[in-house]
Simulated assay, not measured.
Amino acid sequence: MSKVVVVMYVSMDGVVEGPSWTSSFWNAEHAKYQHGQLIASRALLLGRVTYEEFVASWPMRDESDAFTARMNRIPKYVATTTLDKAEWNSVILEGDVVEQVALLKSEPGEDLLVYGSVTLVDHLVANGLVDELKLFVHPVVVGTGRRLFCDGAVGTTWTLAGTAAFSSGAVVLDYRPAKAP
């Protein structure tokens, strides 16, 4: 059985939208961490907005870099109600996203990795399909923008399973759903 692992860039004030504010914190430590996450995964699971942002840039990058080569070759599943077709080694999830992701999770293999895709993540969390939530917190206050969980999000409790700290001041907080008492 596969796990759904979310890696989400977040500011100190909870903003996840348009993470261009992360670039000044990127360094070799971040690259190594992200490479490890990608290598440990069998596929990407993306929402439409993140997919469209990624497909507009990743396929044009130099594949002599191992991360880029892996990013371009890994299978991708796109949750969307507006796209009819997908490129870049991608498949559109047909029908109910919750059912489709549950089916993907039931297959053997490595993780299903979610980058960004905040609307999808909100939906997956509300339906109990996220196994790990890795918040990549950056030491910046953005001020405005979309937050990780929308107003009215289903209340859930998480357990801190691990942390990683980087010389840039960013940290990863690795959460797992808390088990009911």
Rank of each mutant, 00 (worst) to 15 (best):
S168F: 00
P59Q: 04
G162H: 03
T50W: 07
G169P: 01
L129I: 11
E132S: 14
T163W: 00
L129Y: 07
A56N: 13
A153N: 09
S90V: 09
T50I: 10
V141P: 00
S106D: 15
T163L: 04
A178G: 07
F136K: 00
T81F: 07
D122W: 10
C150N: 14
R42S: 15
A102L: 08
L113M: 14
E107N: 12
T119M: 11
L104E: 07
D131E: 07
D96N: 15
T159Q: 08
T68L: 10
D62R: 01
V121F: 08
V97L: 04
S106K: 13
K76Y: 09
A43H: 02
N127R: 09
L112T: 12
E63C: 05
E63S: 13
G116M: 06
N127T: 13
L104F: 11
V154I: 04
T119H: 10
G152A: 06
T81S: 14
P75V: 06
V130I: 12
F54N: 03
A161G: 12
R73Y: 01
D65F: 06
N89G: 08
G162Y: 03
H138P: 02
E53N: 12
T80S: 15
N89Q: 11
G152S: 07
E94T: 14
V130C: 02
F54A: 06
S64D: 10
L129S: 12
S106V: 10
R42F: 03
K105H: 09
T50N: 08
D65G: 04
F149A: 03
T119Y: 09
G109T: 04
R48V: 00
L46A: 04
L135A: 11
N89Y: 06
V49K: 14
Y77N: 02
F166D: 04
V137C: 04
P75S: 08
V114A: 14
V114F: 11
L83I: 02
D96Y: 09
V140S: 00
T144Y: 01
V121Q: 03
T156K: 14
T144F: 00
G155A: 15
P108H: 09
G95V: 08
I92H: 07
S106T: 09
S90N: 10
V101N: 02
